[in-house]
Amino acid sequence: MTFSLVARCAETGMFGLAIASSSPAVAARCSHARASVGAVASQNVTDPTLGPMVLDLMEQGQSAPEAVADIRKRARFVDYRQVLAIDVGGRTAIHSGPKALGIWTQAQGVDVAAGGNLLANDTVPQAMVSHFERSSGHLGDRLLGALKAGLAAGGEAGPVHSAGMKLVDTVSWPVADLRCDWTEGCPIHQLEIVWDIYKPQLDAYIQRALDPREAPSYGVPGDE
């Protein structure tokens, strides 16, 4: 009931992922990323502990393929899980258990991996990977464009209700963690609206955290 992609910007080292689902608040359970380490999506009958476990293993020096292989041995009920990972070297790995729901499939490319379950058809992950590889610019733009390409290729078999995007860069916290937790409309469209508002302010939010003396004005009434 989910389709997603994890990716790295080779120019900046930024990691991110974008995800959409018919379930509520999918990004709150399934999206995981850590600066200078990588990004992980853990989905399909979700076990939210798997994302941090894979990130810990990669931070300890394992590659994405090694970490995902390790998780296959250590985690419970792995036949039900789908895990996508990308590491600091741009290497990717995907585990799709045989008990994943409905039509499920996956695709990998340069600095990107995509996967999904309960899909409308088996072309959705490759559509996301192909779009990401053809794109350029800010990683957030590329992730959202790829997610939209997955939706255009068919997306889920049923209606999509929630979506999210997470980005990490050089600081210890996510520089963007944007979500639409539920809508009867298109959550990917709602996410795109939020990103268009947030993107011009992203660097200012980082600067305010690092040193508010050098930060731009807050742009609210009463702020000089």
Rank of each mutant, 00 (worst) to 15 (best):
P52E: 06
A28W: 00
R91T: 01
Q62G: 07
Q43H: 08
C9V: 11
V26M: 05
M53D: 05
E59N: 13
G51N: 06
S42A: 15
I71D: 00
R81T: 10
T46G: 02
V54Q: 01
S31K: 00
A18Q: 13
S63C: 11
H32P: 11
A28Q: 09
S96T: 14
Q82V: 07
Q43V: 09
Y80S: 09
L50M: 06
R29P: 01
K73Q: 15
S21I: 05
V54L: 09
M53G: 05
V45N: 07
F15Q: 11
E66S: 13
A39F: 13
L55N: 02
D79W: 00
V45D: 02
L17T: 04
M14P: 01
A75P: 12
R29N: 06
A64T: 08
V88E: 11
S31R: 03
G16D: 12
S42T: 10
V68D: 01
I71A: 08
A93V: 03
S63D: 12
S42W: 12
F77I: 03
R81S: 10
S23N: 07
S23V: 07
F15L: 14
G51H: 10
L84D: 03
S21L: 05
A10V: 12
A39Q: 10
K99A: 09
I71T: 07
L84M: 13
S42C: 06
F15N: 10
P52R: 01
A20V: 14
L50C: 04
S63N: 11
A28S: 14
L17E: 14
L84S: 01
R76V: 09
V78I: 15
R72P: 00
D87E: 10
D87T: 03
P24S: 05
S31E: 13
Q82H: 07
R76L: 09
A75C: 10
A28R: 01
P52L: 02
R29S: 09
V26S: 01
V45W: 08
G89S: 14
Q60A: 15
G97N: 12
P48I: 04
D87M: 01
G51Q: 04
T92Q: 02
R34I: 10
E59A: 15
Y80G: 06
G16Q: 07
I19C: 11
A93H: 01
A25R: 07
G38M: 02
S36K: 07
P24H: 04
S96G: 02
Y80R: 14
E59S: 15
D87W: 01
S42V: 03
D56N: 08
R81Q: 11
K73L: 13
M53F: 13
V78N: 08
P52C: 04
E59I: 04
C30A: 12
G97P: 09
C30W: 06
Q62P: 10
D79Y: 01
K99G: 00
G61D: 08
L17Q: 08
A41N: 03
A28M: 06
P65G: 06
H95G: 05
G61W: 00
A75E: 11
S22W: 00
A33Y: 07
V45Q: 08
P48W: 07
R72S: 02
D79M: 03
S96K: 06
E59W: 08
S23I: 04
V68A: 04
A67H: 05
A39E: 15
F77H: 11
